[in-house]
């Protein structure tokens, strides 16, 4: 894992990718910092961090688009997958390299609050909390980008699909507001999920019985929940499912300087889940 990590980290800075990422990130964050804190004479640094989360939409694809397709193109995947390294080691090495580049860039932005501290008191611990949240949020976006890059052999497609996925995650709260909240549509949505799970299982196992069984279990859970457990469970079910994917909602607490365990665990779980899916995708590819 360490060898892959070192190589990827190095590759960011022997090519232009790392510099483009850093430059673009620092340009935009510097612009927002100058507008808010310098010209706006505001001591509130965390709102700057909150306002620049949209940068991820543009810079994360730059960071992640070449991670997997590049190995495929140079055929170095043959070297990696025939070496004694495990796939999880390879994926984690790449993921951590991307996170490290992001982390280094964030370190540079630490200069902004330091500059502010020359002119007055700043809320140090709130800013630290804000930074921790920002790092976790960015890492989660990177895990999505890594996952998308494992699905395609083409860097451009990886970048565009990553951008669209991040845009969707970014807009998810807004989309969720417009979704129906009544009981019936909640149940219909849950049924669609059960069907999709069945189709997914069938696609992976090629066994129609297991697929149908999965759907039936899903249906049974829906019926049992409705009649036995909680009649109101499906009210607003769609919105709740969408909100689960809302990375930004959990960032609000950090922005206010509150450091609580739940969102930290959420972000780490989110990244772990996407890394796990990336590993599965690669393993599946070698099997088919």
């Amino acid at each position: 894992m360490l060898a892959v990590y070192k190589r990827e980290l190095r590759a960011y800075f022997t090519s232009s990718t790392g510099f483009i990422f850093m430059g673009f990130f620092l340009l935009l964050s510097g612009f927002f910092y100058a507008m808010t804190n310098i010209f706006g004479a505001s001591p509130d640094y965390n709102s700057v961090l909150g306002n620049i989360t949209f940068i991820f939409l543009i810079v994360v694809p730059i960071l992640t688009m070449r991670l997997m397709p590049d190995d495929k193109r140079q055929r170095t995947d043959q070297l990696l997958y025939t070496s004694p390294l495990s796939i999880s080691g390879i994926v984690l090495g790449k993921y951590l390299a991307a996170v490290t580049v992001f982390f280094l860039t964030l370190l540079v932005t630490c200069l902004y609050p330091v500059i502010m501290s020359f002119f007055g008191d700043i809320a140090v611990w709130e800013i630290v909390g804000g930074y921790i949240g920002f790092l976790l949020l960015g890492s989660s976006f990177i895990s999505i980008g890594l996952f998308v890059s494992s699905l395609t052999d083409n860097q451009v497609i990886a970048a565009v699909v990553t951008f669209s996925s991040l845009l969707f995650v970014w807009l998810i709260d807004w989309i969720a507001q417009g979704l129906p909240t009544d009981k019936v549509s909640g149940i219909v949505f849950a049924s669609i999920l059960a069907l999709a799970a069945g189709a997914f299982v069938y696609y992976n196992t090629k066994n129609i019985y297991v697929g149908v069984a999965t759907t039936l279990v899903g249906a049974a859970v829906i019926v049992a929940t409705y009649f036995l457990a909680d009649r109101y469970f499906f009210d607003g079910f769609i919105v709740r499912v969408f909100e689960w994917f809302s990375l930004l909602k959990r960032y609000e607490e950090f922005q206010m300087g509150v450091l609580s365990l739940a969102p930290i665990v959420y972000y780490i779980t989110f990244s772990a889940a996407f890394n796990f899916m990336t590993i599965r995708v690669i393993e599946k590819r070698r099997w088919s």
């Binding site: 590759a11 022997t14 140079q74 170095t76 070297l79």
Partner: peptide, 9 residues
């Protein structure tokens, strides 16, 4: 068949 090399190293 195609040597797997990282050409930027």
């Amino acid at each position: 068949e195609f040597p797997p090399l990282y050409i930027d190293m």
